[in-house]
Write a protein that binds this DNA or RNA. Structure first.
Lengths: 249, 249
DNA sequence: AGAAGGACCAGTGGTCCGTA
DNA sequence: AGAAGGACCAGTGGTCCGTA
């Protein structure tokens, strides 16, 4: 049961009618290794709005919108219990995307078309067509910098995970905390050039630098202390307003 | 007169009310060196449709749409006579764009924004704002591969110019002829990887590989003889139709 | 409340086609 | 006819905000 492939996907309730094209990629690494062994639930539900065709269906019975389980802060190697996903699984999604990119690149070269160097919309579309409905752009972009820390300093990343799990912090707090070690690395090893930081690791180089991290590195270069949280939360506090057209928030 | 800067621009009838911001760049290299000394015409006309504001204006008097003079095939160093521009001037436009790109990159780094590696829409917009109204995207994209040959094999490029001038061919025919030497270079020096070919020369690496050249290299790799002209002209002749979703035309 | 992701939007790469 | 370029369009990067 644990090694039955695609289990990790069906567990998420998102494996409804996957296109079979390129299934081998969709299932890669998903062999049940991310779930606690506590007796799975194989019920499959239909998404209400995503429904194709006009089947008569009671709105109350199969009507729930299906989503991935939310992430919780887990230690390295720890499996999330209950309807949760752990951070090893999160990082695994980035590896899946990398494999989809490699496939898109191979196809493009074969066809003589222009070849993406990054995980683009085209790659996300390819992943969806290949049945990987658990991968989507907003999620991957949201946690890119967390994956960056995992790639660039796995020890620091692991320590942060343990500390935030210990303190009972939620995923949002852990995610925020991932920014600062990266800013420090960009400062000390790359003279605040965060593009160079990302380019320095092959698994990371295929991801766009997130706007927020770029802004934090820029602010840090100008010695502006910025401990604000996500966008929409804070006010701009810059000593160089003539250079800033947008607030860092 | 010959060294009065901006002359080359006003000669083209396109210097109507340039934004003064970054004028030094707009005039760079344009110091009259591309025009034959035959007495200039400094008349300035207004574009009819591009008109801003509601000035009452007779349609017949100032109504002509102003454009750059068409290119003619010139030898290296030759100056175009009459209302024509020569190919040295064409290649100079690529150098101007490169300088605008360098400015945009410097600004982006200063502001901590993402930094373009290519001549993008943003660069063309910057060039226009800086008063370089003689630079536009369709023109630059149209002749990129001609500039590529000039960069990569100036001897071959010069020989081709002399041959086509000798034969009295028009610019379109010369432009078409520029493709084949590039395909041969991509074949022999880069195993048909035209992206690698462009990347091999710094002045060229900032330009997107044109679709048509990419397709010709792909067709050549599959030993498909393709001597067709521009798109819309020929029919697809491919021995690998299962790999082709679009005709090369 | 904290979080996942459909769907939107401004600005892109690409070039057609009305214009001169 | 040959050629220059305004303007359009499909698909992009980016992320908001209605949803659960």
């Amino acid at each position: 049961e644990v090694n039955h492939h695609l289990d990790a996907l069906s567990q998420e309730g998102l494996s409804e009618e996957p296109v079979q094209e390129e299934k081998e990629a969709a299932g890669s690494g998903g062999g049940g290794q991310w779930e606690a062994s506590e007796g799975k639930k194989h019920r499959r539900r239909r998404a209400t709005k995503g429904n194709v065709g006009g089947d008569a269906e009671e709105g109350s019975s199969g009507g729930e919108r299906q989503r991935e389980h939310p992430f919780i802060v887990t230690e390295p190697g720890e499996v999330a219990r209950g309807k949760k996903n752990g951070l090893d699984y999160l990082f695994h999604l980035y590896d899946e995307c990398r494999n989809f990119l490699i496939q898109v690149q191979a196809l493009a070269k074969e066809r003589g078309e222009k070849c993406p160097n990054k995980v683009t919309n085209q790659v996300f579309r390819h992943a969806k067509r290949a049945g990987a409905s658990h991968i989507n752009k907003p999620k991957m972009r949201h946690y890119v910098h967390c994956y960056a820390l995992h790639c660039l300093d796995e020890e620091a990343s692991n320590a942060l995970r343990r500390a935030f799990k210990e303190r009972g912090e939620n995923v949002g707090a852990w995610r925020q905390a991932c920014y600062h070690p990266l800013v420090a690395m960009s400062r000390h090893h790359h003279a605040w050039d965060v593009d160079a930081l990302f380019a320095s690791h092959p698994s990371l180089a295929i991801w766009y630098v997130p706007t927020k991290l770029r802004q934090l590195c820029h602010a840090d270069r100008h010695s502006v202390t910025n401990t604000d949280g996500e966008a929409h939360v804070g006010a701009a506090t810059t000593a160089h307003s003539h250079l800033h057209h947008h607030s860092i928030a």
